[in-house]
């Protein structure tokens, strides 16, 4: 087994351990961050460091930014997600956010571990430095919107409990509606520019590779749909005062679009963006 695959497996192990710790911490009712929560954070930081090493090893082995097939993309997605979560964690210090986000990273990694992980030649037409720029921006955007999705789910749960006046143990662990809504806004104001730049850099790259900025292939179309959805939410927030429940629902819808753009298009529809197109002749 090559170094990067071994590292990948250890990383997955760390993420799983962190997830378990986060969940255990959340199930217990204490409001302040307990020992388990702290342990979870450190395990996750360790996992993230390993993940960095995994990607580096893969990069050295493959000779290109390792986002050229589904296995690599999923790993990269999980990496940005954990990184963005850790950034948010510095500001918000919420184990419960970890308990919701980490399982997603684990799922991404698990799917990644089942897909083919062989290193293939990169299509020389695509080998430009726009490649890493495009994918990094796009995935960072995805990761930030994933956090928005998580905050949205948490918001809806908390709002439901406050409205129905029936409180489960989670009520005590979830932060206030205000905090969750502000996470939504923060994600939007970071995620949207990232996504926009991701799309623009993709267009520029496409132009240099295929000699055209935009071809309406399914991935491009769906990315645009997703972009419009988030644009609508941002607009609504800034002008009409959309917030709370509606913003949470939009964040969730946006994430579903995002997932479809990522998985659905790759697996079902795409031509240019499909991973087959990434391979050399």
């Amino acid at each position: 087994m090559s170094v990067n695959l071994l590292l990948f497996k250890i990383t997955l192990l760390f993420y799983t351990a962190a997830t378990v710790l986060y969940l255990v911490d959340v199930v217990r009712r204490k409001e302040k961050i307990g020992k388990t929560g702290k342990a979870a954070r450190w395990v996750l930081v360790g996992g993230f460091a390993l993940h960095c090493a995994t990607l580096l090893a893969r990069y050295l082995e493959a000779g290109y930014t390792p986002v050229a097939n589904l296995h690599e993309s999923l790993s990269f997605f999980a990496w940005t997600l954990v990184g963005i979560f850790l950034l948010f964690d510095i500001r918000y210090r919420m184990t419960v956010l970890g308990a919701f986000s980490c399982p997603l990273a684990v799922i991404l990694m698990l799917i990644g571990s089942t897909t083919s992980n062989t290193v293939k030649e990169l299509n020389p037409a695509l080998d430009s430095w726009w490649f890493p720029v495009h994918v990094t921006l796009a995935f960072l955007g995805n990761a930030v919107f994933t956090v928005a999705f998580v905050a949205g789910v948490m918001y809806l749960l908390q709002e439901r409990m406050l409205k129905s006046k029936k409180f489960s143990a989670l009520y005590y662990r979830l932060p206030s509606l205000d905090v969750l809504d502000s996470i939504n806004y923060k994600c939007l104001s970071f995620g949207f520019p990232l996504m926009t730049m991701g799309i623009i850099s993709g267009a520029v790259w496409a132009n240099s590779a295929w000699g055209g900025y935009w071809r309406w292939d399914p991935k491009e179309t769906w990315a645009l749909i997703t972009w419009f959805l988030y644009a609508a939410l941002l607009h609504g927030r800034l002008t009409v005062g959309w917030r709370g429940r509606r913003a949470a629902i939009f964040a969730i819808l946006g994430f579903l679009c995002l997932l479809f753009t990522f998985f659905g298009v790759n697996l079902l529809l795409s031509d240019l963006h499909s991973f087959k197109a990434m391979e050399g002749p």
């Binding site: 406050l162 206030s176 509606l177 205000d178």
Partner: peptide
């Protein structure tokens, strides 16, 4: 309850 709605 107010804290769970407004935060601070």
């Amino acid at each position: 309850l107010a804290r769970k709605i407004f935060g601070s």
